[in-house]
């Protein structure tokens, strides 16, 4: 009795192998699709920015005349915003991570906070904008200033820092903690002198990634009311401000009226992408160079 009909198998084999090869080609094309779009996107933006992106563009203030317009205000606004976001999100994020990993007892409370953080990560950024508008801009009556925008943004990127810090703290091996306790150190001394120094590369990577997310976010800040108007350069965290992505937004929607605004938007995008690229590179270098493996 024959279990396998060799001829039948032979006949089918050709079409099965063909299907395999066709599918492989298709999958490869799908993979290339994303990469091709990436290339087109960068090419388009760079091509449109040529002739517009120069030192004057970086140093000039905003202007309605395209040839005189610059992004100094947006650059300063972005820097001020980061000066608020970085410390706030770092203190909140690392503090939460230490609590969850080192102090919280495994149980309902801990898993509740954990679930809450992962749900917070899924809340659309525009909703955070509404929170910022209601609480910081209106209830606390700060107005659409750097501080209000920074606090909103810090809450938005908080989950990124918490999760990254938790992973970094969890990666510190238990024997380091035990050695520290064995020397007579208290819990906080152990965390401060052993756990945090060992996990700082992972934490920094998370903070930088969170900041690069914050730099590119537009919607929450449009919602809290950054104007398209010409405003003076911000000089403190209680000044009104604009940032790079919001500037891109207004120039893009106005490009229907003044065609050159599209070039200004493209030039600003190039600046934004370069900043993001540098930040991500630093994050990767920190991760690869300073992360110890135990």
């Amino acid at each position: 009795m024959k279990y396998v009909d060799a001829q039948q198998v032979q006949k089918k084999m050709a079409s099965r192998l063909l299907a395999n090869n066709v599918a492989k080609g298709l999958f490869l094309l799908a993979t290339l699709f994303g990469l091709v779009v990436l290339v087109i996107l960068i090419y388009r933006v760079v091509a449109q920015s040529i002739g517009w992106l120069d030192a004057d563009f970086l140093m000039n203030k905003l202007s309605t005349a395209p040839e005189r317009a610059g992004i100094m205000g947006a650059i300063m606004g972005t820097l001020w915003l980061m000066l608020v976001v970085a410390p706030v999100t770092m203190i909140l994020g690392v503090g939460t991570a230490i609590y969850l990993e080192e102090y919280a007892k495994k149980g309902k409370l801990q898993s509740f906070i954990q679930t809450n953080i992962s749900n917070l990560a899924g809340v659309p950024s525009v909703v955070f904008g509404i929170l910022g508008l209601t609480v910081f801009v209106r209830a606390l009556d700060l107005g659409s200033v750097v501080l209000a925008g920074g606090l909103t943004m810090a809450l938005l990127v908080l989950p990124v820092v918490v999760v990254a810090s938790q992973e970094a703290i969890r990666a510190v091996p238990q024997f380091l903690r035990e050695a520290s306790y064995g020397m007579g150190a208290t819990k906080w001394q152990t965390i401060k002198n052993v756990v945090l120094p060992a996990s700082i590369p992972g934490i920094l990577t998370g903070v930088i990634l969170a900041l690069s997310r914050a730099i590119g976010e537009t919607a929450p800040l449009v919602v809290i009311g950054i104007p398209a108007l010409l405003i003076p350069l911000p000089e403190g965290i209680l000044d009104r401000f604009t940032i790079l992505p919001v500037q891109i937004y207004y120039w893009t929607i106005d490009s229907a009226l003044v065609a050159e605004y599209a070039n200004l938007a493209a030039a600003t995008i190039v600046v934004l992408l370069i900043v993001l690229f540098l930040m991500n590179s630093i994050a990767i270098i920190i991760r690869n160079k300073f992360q110890k493996r135990y």
Partner: peptide, 24 residues
């Protein structure tokens, strides 16, 4: 090689995609 390149695509701010949609 491909995975980090895709991550770049994921890291591009949405405002840039908006510009891309509108102008290209």
């Amino acid at each position: 090689t491909v995975k980090p390149l895709l991550e770049i695509l994921a890291g591009i701010p949405t405002i840039v995609y908006g510009f891309f949609a509108f102008t290209f």
